[in-house]
Amino acid sequence: MHRNPSRPLSPHLTIWRWGPHMLVSILHRVTGSGLATIGAAALVWWLAAAASGPEAYGTFVSWATSWIGIVIGVGLSWAFFQHTLSGIRHLVMDIGAGFELSTNKFWANMTLVGSALLTALFWFVVLGVK
């Protein structure tokens, strides 16, 4: 199906004034897509390796604990926390709440602060306890 050029396009990125809500909205999509591809692959690899035996699991662990594995792991954990917090924000807004401008901006910012804090806390516990 071809787009009919005489029909208007919906307003897009370029026309809105930038704010945290826009960043958070875009990040929801970016993090969702990252988790759906790299995150899902990592989850499958982890479980399949555990099912295949100690050798396969060892290969997984040596990748996961290499510096590239750690970068990906930290990235995925941040993506998860960011996506989850903005996902909760989505659900709240679906109920019709939180649209008042300052409230909306506040919670958009809180997802960014929250995901950074949760990522730090998660790795602190992982590395601190073990």
Partner: peptide
């Protein structure tokens, strides 16, 4: 495919 592989892996374990 991904879901099946992960699911089967957990069952196998």
């Amino acid at each position: 495919a991904g879901a099946a592989l992960a699911f089967f892996s957990v069952l196998k374990i």
